[in-house]
């Protein structure tokens, strides 16, 4: 009985509309937080008031209203500014160690410790 309820609830969660009132706005905010300001490179374009950041926010807004997907927008930016402009590092051979490193480390260190255990 309990597990049935759990299933139903999980179902509700997954199928419910998870966006707040303004669909575009939440997506917009999430997007601009992932884009690096190329001028003052320590901020994303959500925080930066640099002219370029303002322009980029406008452009992102435009593309969203135009119905473009997140992937399209991100590709648009990296095609012109390189991967550097996204705070989400790319997943390619050069970043393989970056993405796999933590898991590898976890596995190795767990093995090192638990293999020495005396039963």
């Amino acid at each position: 009985m309990i597990s049935k309820i759990k299933y139903i609830l999980v179902g509700i969660i997954f199928f419910s509309n998870t966006y707040a009132e303004d669909f575009d706005n939440q997506r917009y905010q999430n997007l601009i937080e992932e884009i690096r300001c190329m001028v003052c490179q320590n901020q994303n374009i959500a925080e930066s008031e640099a002219p370029l950041a303002v322009d980029l926010r406008e452009k992102v807004k435009e593309m969203l209203l135009d119905g473009k997907s997140n992937i399209y927008i991100k590709n648009y930016l990296t095609d012109r500014y390189s991967d550097f402009i996204l705070y989400d590092p790319p997943k390619n051979t050069q970043t393989a160690l970056l993405w796999l490193g933590p898991v590898l480390f976890l596995v190795i260190i767990t093995y090192l410790f638990y293999s020495r255990r005396e039963r």
Binding site: M38, L52, D55, L56, K59, Y81
Partner: peptide, 13 residues
């Protein structure tokens, strides 16, 4: 004026 071309060319500095 708007910086549109700049965006197309990836201008930042």
């Amino acid at each position: 004026k708007e910086g549109r071309l700049g965006l197309e060319l990836g201008v930042y500095g």
